[in-house]
Amino acid sequence: MEAVLEAFLSHYNYGMAIILMMIGLYALIAKQNLVKKLIGLNIFQTAIFLFYISFADVEGGIAPIYLPEGMEAIYVNPLPHVLILTAIVVGVSVTAVGLSLIVRIYEEYGVIDEAGLLKMVKRR
């Protein structure tokens, strides 16, 4: 029991990220509303960012900016932060394109839910 608790406490960061990912993925797949789908996509991506950032952490570490000379410190791993800066931009870009598409779909069909869209597409 203690071991399980230990394992949980030392890994809960990943668990949280994964639960968020699952929530996001579920919304992405199951939601009918296209905008909600995109929100799901965003949650999914953000959860991945969280996952990256959390494994960058080092116990007792500080932000990876050098302290003045002579002061020793533990810095957290800087690389995941860099990667996630890039990934955030990608996520934003995809969201922008997705939303533009939804705008266009709404203009063409007058609906933004999947079932309604399916009907409209079939009718044409």
Binding site: V97, L101, I102
Partner: peptide, 11 residues
């Protein structure tokens, strides 16, 4: 217009 739907699906 269908292309928008196809593109969103792909997205």
């Amino acid at each position: 217009p269908r292309a928008y739907v196809a593109a969103l699906n792909y997205l």
